[in-house]
Amino acid sequence: MRIFPILLLLGITQLQAAGLFGPDRDANGNIVPTPKGEFCIEPAEVMRRDHMNLLLHKRDQTVYDGIRTKKASLNECIACHVTPDETGKVARADEEEFFCSSCHVATSVSIDCFDCHADRPLEMIENAKIDEQPFTSGKPYTLLKSSDLQQ
């Protein structure tokens, strides 16, 4: 009766999809946030295997040649794959619920993309501007005004 655990798993996945067990998880138990769009730039199999190569290629095209098309642009990935959950919360890069982190934590592949790159689309950042968490230094979030600096 090998089929039984799979059926059970499918059942759990169904329950999760209904929002009873927190975020969506795939058969391996990894969190899968719901993307915004209908389809990705390549089939899921290709993306799983090659997303880093696509990103790397696009990265150099953008940095050196100023090519900023949407395909394989990190910002476009974020715009589609970083979505609020049912409570309206958006997972951040250091959380397991974040789109990239869910697999990268499971596979123990650390990435430093989000040390520099935004982990949310622009509109979410601007919405969050007013009651943003303070910086690690404990200083409040303020836009730098040069008049604040000593002359």
Binding site: N75, I78, D115, C116, H117, A118, P121, L122, I125, A128, E132, Q133, F135, T136, Y141
Partner: peptide, 10 residues
């Protein structure tokens, strides 16, 4: 460490 960088200015 920086947080809340803008998408067009990493």
């Amino acid at each position: 460490k920086l947080t809340d960088q803008l998408p067009h200015a990493p």
